[in-house]
Structure formats: structure tokens, C-alpha cells
Amino acid sequence: MTERLDRARILSSQNGVDALLVTPGADLRYLTGYAAKPLERLTCLVVTQLGSHLVVPGLERSAAEAAGVSMPIVTWDELDDPFAIVAHLVGDADVVAVDDQMWASRVFALQEALPEASLVLGGQLVSALRAVKDDEEVQALRDAGAAIDRVHARMGEWLRPGRTEREVGADIARAIVEEGHEQVDFVIVGSGPNGASPHHEVSDRVIGAGEPVVVDIGGTNAAGYCSDSTRNYVAGGEPDPGYIAMLEVLKQAQQAQREYARPGVTAESVDAIGRQIIADAGYGDRFIHRTGHGIGQETHEEPYIVEGNRTVLEPGMAFSIEPGIYVEGQWGARIEDIVVCTQDGLEVLNNTPRDLVRL
């Protein structure tokens, strides 16, 4: 964590930031190793050019120490003003960056405690660091990817006609934990027309024979890293030929994106490769979301694989490749893999079948 803090300090200085303040969330865990609970009592990492301190409520000190926090821990008691403590550590800093997810009430309290300082958003400073994974992080993502692959491989245990999406989703959720995750982040089981809603979760709809089913699932493992993978299923019969033709286009687009993505190309160019294939097949207006998102300690983080993002991919960047096609009122399909840029190519972390899985 010391190296990460040093890099955050250097990057802050390069961007004209005198102090960086980070409250509970993925940024704090990334920089300190401490997954602090977002409580009403203030916990705040203070990073200045002189060093780093973690301000915590006195009753949370043991939790911070147990997490292995190596920097000085400054505690405050019930009658203390924690914002005054943070202001003292910040000193005479002119520009103070706060994490993007800091509660508004805390931003206002800090502004009051630091009347001479300019508060700016600091999320881009930390996200620039988090976007490039080190070897340990990549291994944690590999482990998460293998765990979610094992869940997909078991889908035949639960997904069958006559069961509701909710019933199947509950079984999947239990398996996500059984196969190596510490928590379930989301379960999407979109059968028939529900598959046309990319963020549909589960419902009491009964799955019919021969209906396409989109299953998008993910969790977080003990190392704090996420999985996310989508596959397409059918049980008890054959789907409409129109769906089969659509899915073949989607498969070609996703494969082309996987083969193209590598260090040195832009995030938006990966999106464009698959989007053109889908558009040429007549489904352009039915690919209604970006191609992908970065992944790490959060399911969605930088870099985003979308038009307009000219970020050049680098070794260590991890992200999803998940084009989709959605026909409202009928069906939808999405194929999603998590990938990591290597020195000269791409490592794919999900390796279950990308064809329609017949159960």
C-alpha cells in the first residue's frame, strides 16, 4: 500500500493538488487495504506531500489495525470534531481533492473547516492508479473469473422450463458464494422478452420451453475483486431461428473485439469494431449500451469501453467486452468476458462456451 500512496502523492502533485481526502469506499480500500464501513462517524484518509494519516473514530481503530493499515492512525472521540482534525492534518493546502463518492454533508463540513482551500474532485487521481492492475490484482481477477465460470458451468442444475427467474436466481446466488465469492453483487436472469432489458434482474415470470435466457452474474471474492460474466441459455426446446441468427452476429462481434483489443489501441476503437459488425447486420439501433467497463475492486470502474473515450489501453488494464442486441418484446442476448491487457495482447479471464448453451 505504501507504493500506491506514494504514486497517489506524486500524481496529486503533478495535477496541482496539495492534499487528497478519501472516505470509505473502493478508493480507500485500494490505498490502505482497509474496507471501512460507510458509517455516520467520519473515517478519512489524508494524503499530503508530507505524508499520510488515517483519521478514524476511536471505536474503529482496532478494525483499521486488523486490516493492516501501516500509516499513522489518528483517532477521535465522540465529543471531538473530526473535520477539525482533518483540517489540521491538511494544514495550509490551497487545493484539496476529495473522492468522488464522498457524502455531500462531509464535503460541506470540510469546506467549512477549510475556508481558504479550494475543494476539487479527486476521483480521477485514484482511478488513474486503479485502472492499471499489478500482478497480485490480476491474479485476484483470474480467481474471480474462474469462480464465476464454475457457476455458469452448473447452470443446468437450476435453469429449466417451469421455474421462475426468481427461483433460478436464488440458486445462482447461493452457488456464487459456494464457488469462491465472499458476496453476491448481482444476478440477472432475463427470460424471453425480459432478456431485452439489459439491467433486468429477476422476476416471478415462469421460464418457458425454448425461450432464450440471458444470465449475467457477478460477485466479489475475499481479495476484494469482482467477477462479471454473461452467457445465453435455452432449455426444453429450440428458440426461434431469428434469435439464432441474431446471436451469431453478436458472437462474431464479440470475437472480433476480443481479437482486436490490445495495448496501444483506444478504448473507443474496441467499441467501434463490434458496433460496426452489429450495425452492418441490421441491428445497430438494438445495441443500446457501451461495449464494456473496467473492473477491479468495483464491478464498474475505469476504463470504459465506449465511443468518446480516447484512453489508450495499457498492460494491466482489466475490462469487460460485452456487446448486446435487444429486441423489445421478444428477446435479447449479451456475451460478456472479462479481459486483461498483457504486454502484447489480451488475456481472457472467462472461458465458458460463448455459443448458445442448450440445457
Rank of each mutant, 00 (worst) to 15 (best):
T164F: 10
M246V: 06
A109V: 04
E238S: 11
V213Q: 08
G156P: 00
A66K: 15
V107P: 00
G218H: 01
A267P: 08
A64L: 07
M155G: 09
A281Q: 04
D280R: 12
R41M: 03
A222G: 03
R29V: 03
E238A: 13
L125Q: 02
G169N: 14
H181S: 06
Y304K: 02
R7Q: 14
T43E: 07
S269P: 01
Y233R: 12
L59H: 11
G16P: 08
A170P: 12
A222W: 06
E165S: 15
G68Y: 11
K251M: 09
Q276M: 09
P263I: 00
L129M: 08
P198G: 00
V138D: 05
L250P: 04
A279S: 14
V98H: 00
S62E: 11
D240T: 04
T291S: 12
A8N: 09
N221R: 00
W331F: 15
S227V: 03
L141Y: 12
V339T: 03
A281Y: 08
L5Q: 11
L119A: 03
A222V: 10
V126L: 10
T220R: 15
G236W: 10
V22C: 01
V47P: 01
E298F: 04
M1C: 09
G332P: 04
P241G: 04
A113Q: 08
D135W: 14
R9Y: 08
V213T: 13
M1Y: 09
A64D: 06
R41L: 07
N232Q: 05
G219C: 02
A173N: 12
G236N: 12
R275K: 14
V213E: 12
E167W: 14
T311S: 11
V120R: 12
V17M: 06
E40W: 08
G345F: 05
A147H: 01
A67S: 15
Y30K: 00
P239T: 14
E165K: 13
E165C: 14
Y34E: 01
E40P: 02
